[in-house]
């Protein structure tokens, strides 16, 4: 019993840590929309690979990269980009995934069979590989990288939604609504969807982390925007060659992306425990 309490307290602490990391990330991202110490794209070749400190009267708190751009400003601006990436990718994937999952789970039959085979196909090859092929088709660029990561993420939401829709459609309140003459649309939007939200929110939180991670991975491979855009994955890739001489230039984006993804993972785990007591038992024993 004592250890149960301790576990749940510690889990709360982990969830709170996750929430704090996510909150810090969102605040930095919002601040960076209006203010960064330097222009994140401003090149100053004299300040090339500068260690943290003051240079020509200007403060470079995290140093400067290989073409003398301020790393603190770029890391901050990178937060805005990653936040936007995460939100757009997850929103897009949820929209499509929920629609497909509802169709499959609520109506069943051949729609279910066809849609789920389609999802199996997307899951058949490793996600990063599928995403690479999709970006190659669409052409490089951050927007296309986001579309690719979003497409690969669809099955995750479709599967959750399908399972939930199948569970909910047999419930008494749905049967009652139908017997009172409610149409499919009313039932889906008023009865099914609201009762499927909890697992979707958990998936979305965990999905934010993977969306940011995977998009940065594509960007790292050079499939994102051009180098002037301060995207974290790209920043790391660009400084890769200088890492022996100027290791401090990769630390800020590297630590930022790891902490942000960790934050979403901790928060997602915590939400899962809080929202669904059945899952708490499964994950806690």
């Amino acid at each position: 019993m004592g250890s149960d309490v301790r576990t749940s307290l510690a889990r709360n602490r982990m969830c709170a840590t996750g929430a704090a990391l996510v909150a810090a990330f969102v605040s930095v991202a919002i601040v960076a929309f209006v203010y960064t110490p330097h222009d994140p794209r401003e090149v100053d070749l004299a300040a090339k690979n500068l260690p943290p400190g003051v240079f020509e009267g200007e403060r470079y708190a995290f140093g400067a990269d290989a073409v003398g751009r301020d790393i603190l400003s770029r890391t901050m601006a990178g937060a805005s980009i990653s936040l936007r990436v995460g939100l757009l990718v997850v929103a897009g994937a949820i929209l499509v995934g929920v629609a497909l999952g509802t169709l499959a789970g609520y109506y069943g039959g051949w729609a279910d069979a066809v849609l789920m085979r389609l999802m199996d196909m997307l899951l058949a090859a490793p996600g990063i590989l599928m995403a690479i092929v999709i970006v190659t088709v669409l052409g490089p660029g951050l927007r296309n990288a986001m579309i690719a990561v979003g497409i690969v993420a669809i099955p995750r939401y479709a599967r959750v939604m399908r399972a939930e829709a199948m569970r909910v459609k047999g419930q008494e309140y749905v049967v009652a609504a139908r017997s009172l003459g409610a149409g499919d649309w009313w039932i889906l939007s008023r009865a099914v969807l609201p009762n499927c939200l909890a697992p979707l929110i958990v998936q979305a939180t965990l999905g934010m982390g993977s969306a940011i991670l995977e998009t940065a991975g594509l960007s790292y491979l050079g499939l994102g925007d051009d180098p002037s855009v301060p995207e974290w994955g790209r920043m790391i890739a660009e400084q890769f060659g200088y890492v022996r001489r100027a290791w401090w230039t990769v630390v800020p984006p590297l630590v930022s992306i790891s902490l942000v993804v960790l934050g979403f993972n901790l928060l997602g785990d915590g939400l899962r425990d809080a929202m669904d007591p059945r899952l708490r038992q499964a994950s806690d024993g």
Partner: peptide
């Protein structure tokens, strides 16, 4: 293990 799934693989390789 949670940190392990959160750190990008290229960052880990680099470190």
């Amino acid at each position: 293990s949670l940190v392990g799934v959160s750190v990008p693989i290229y960052c880990l390789g680099l470190v």
